[in-house]
């Protein structure tokens, strides 16, 4: 099953990228995620591994994932190593320029259990609304967090400019 959600954030891609590659921030903005822990010595980047879980229905579902694509600040993709089969992707594209930079963010997740047959097909479809809602809320939370951070930084710059003037 493949679900996706997208949103425009009033910030440059680099500012959004800071959030989506930092595993320590995942629990703050990823809705439904109950665990996102670094496994191994590489906290981020190509080959980084995380143990992640998302609450879906009566269970926390997930497993270990590995980052398989890392193109700063545009794409980060991962695929499952253990647990349920899944592929995820953050896709960041610059939309605005100059004084009003904007980033179009797309969050994709494909999941399932190979070989699970009809019940697998049914469970994927029945769980899709909840997973999809998790993705949408994640993006809304990400937008709020990133834009708030942008405002905070801009205010700090204005204060320092006034102080130096």
């Amino acid at each position: 099953m493949r679900v996706a959600a997208q949103i425009d954030i009033a910030a440059p891609p680099e500012a959004v990228w800071e959030f989506v590659v930092d595993p320590e921030r995942y629990l703050h903005f990823m809705h439904g995620i109950t665990r996102w822990e670094v496994c191994g010595d590489t906290p981020s980047g190509l080959g980084a591994r995380y143990r992640m879980l998302m609450r879906v229905g009566s269970a926390e579902v997930g497993g270990m994932v590995e980052v398989t694509e890392y193109a700063e600040p545009r794409d980060m993709a991962w695929t499952s190593v253990t647990g349920v089969d899944q592929r995820g992707r953050w896709r960041l594209r610059e939309r605005g320029t100059g004084h009003a930079p904007r980033t179009h963010v797309e969050f994709r997740l494909s999941y399932g259990v190979a070989g699970a047959g009809l019940l697998g097909w049914l469970s994927e479809r029945l769980s899709a609304p909840q997973v999809s809602a998790n993705l949408r809320r994640t993006l809304q939370q990400l937008k709020r967090t990133v834009e708030h951070e942008q405002l905070r930084r801009a205010a700090a710059e204005r204060r320092s400019a006034r102080a130096s003037a």
């Binding site: 009566s58 269970a59 070989g115 019940l119 697998g120």
Partner: peptide, 25 residues
């Protein structure tokens, strides 16, 4: 592998029929 392939069926039973909730894992 057998267990993994049965998880969706268990998920349907647990989530939809028994409205299962497991805390403190």
């Amino acid at each position: 592998d057998f267990i993994r392939e049965r998880l969706p069926g268990l998920w349907l039973l647990s989530s939809l029929y028994f409205r299962g909730e497991v805390r403190g894992l």
